[in-house]
């Protein structure tokens, strides 16, 4: 392979590596979002929670994750721009509590009809990341039997704090997803490249033992990072020390030539 194509190959190899690491991150992120919703919903004495994220550039939303009795009916359901409580919260950036949410105008209405579930009280708060609104976090109904007490102003404040944590995960998920989509295009799943030769090459990169090892390492780091601040700090220091040692080693070997 010529020098130019060699550079291209190394760039593509790096891209594939990045994409595959992103793939290993996406699923755990959605799991983390779900876990966080479970914990925070319980804190708010709520029964159902969901995360809606932007879908395209026109202000539409779609459900990314949901917990509760009707969760499976909500996933991938879309909410048109500015529609209903979630649409307003997304476009205005203002949280809102609705004590008697039932009725045709809520996006849950269709799901309610299909499942017999009854949406009665909603707390919706925006997900902000880096000053941008990237979605909406909702809590629906209370634990136990109706009638449900409306969410209080104090619970609105709590939900805003929970939304910050969820927003960080959603932002990470979106970045990882973007990389995953790039990877799909590059590997031809979406018709990006149609050459068998390129696909074979990608397959060989992915099958290479060093690539598999790198993914294992990424998973290990993710697991350490999930254990807490102290573990993250220690991990950072150890990796930093390895890098320094490795750099010094390179310098020595360079000087010896």
């Amino acid at each position: 392979m010529s020098e130019v194509s060699g550079t291209l190959e190394s760039k593509l190899t790096r891209l594939v590596e990045t994409v595959d690491i992103a793939n290993t991150l996406t699923d755990p992120l959605t799991n983390s979002i779900e876990n966080l919703m479970r914990v925070t919903a319980s804190e708010l004495n709520s029964e159902e929670a969901s995360v809606l994220i932007r879908d395209g550039d026109d202000g539409d939303l779609r459900f990314l994750s949901a917990i509760g009795r009707v969760a499976e009916h909500l996933l991938d359901l879309k909410v048109p721009a500015g529609k209903g409580i979630a649409g307003f919260v997304f476009s205005s950036g203002q949280p809102m509590v609705v004590a008697d949410a039932g009725g045709e105008e809520t996006f849950y209405a269709e799901v309610d009809k299909r499942t017999g579930y009854s949406t009665q009280t909603i707390l919706a708060t925006p997900l902000r990341y880096n000053g941008e609104i990237i979605g909406v976090l909702e809590y629906v109904n209370r634990i136990g039997d109706p009638p449900y007490a409306p969410f209080s102003p104090e619970e609105m404040d709590k939900a805003a704090l929970f939304a910050d944590a969820v927003a960080s995960l959603v932002a990470a998920y979106e970045s990882a997803k973007l990389l995953r989509e790039l990877g799909r295009k590059a590997s031809g799943d979406d018709g990006g490249f149609e050459f068998q030769e390129v696909r074979d090459w990608l397959a060989s990169v992915r099958a290479a033992p060093e690539h598999v090892e790198m993914l294992d390492l990424a998973v290990l780091i993710r697991e350490v990072a999930a254990r807490g601040d102290a573990e993250r700090q220690m991990c950072r220091e150890i990796i930093g020390a390895i890098l320094k040692y490795s750099e010094r080693g390179s310098e020595r070997s360079f000087l010896s030539f």
Partner: peptide, 10 residues
Amino acid sequence: PGGAYKSLTG
């Protein structure tokens, strides 16, 4: 909207 009434907080 729709002739309805709701109890709202914000």
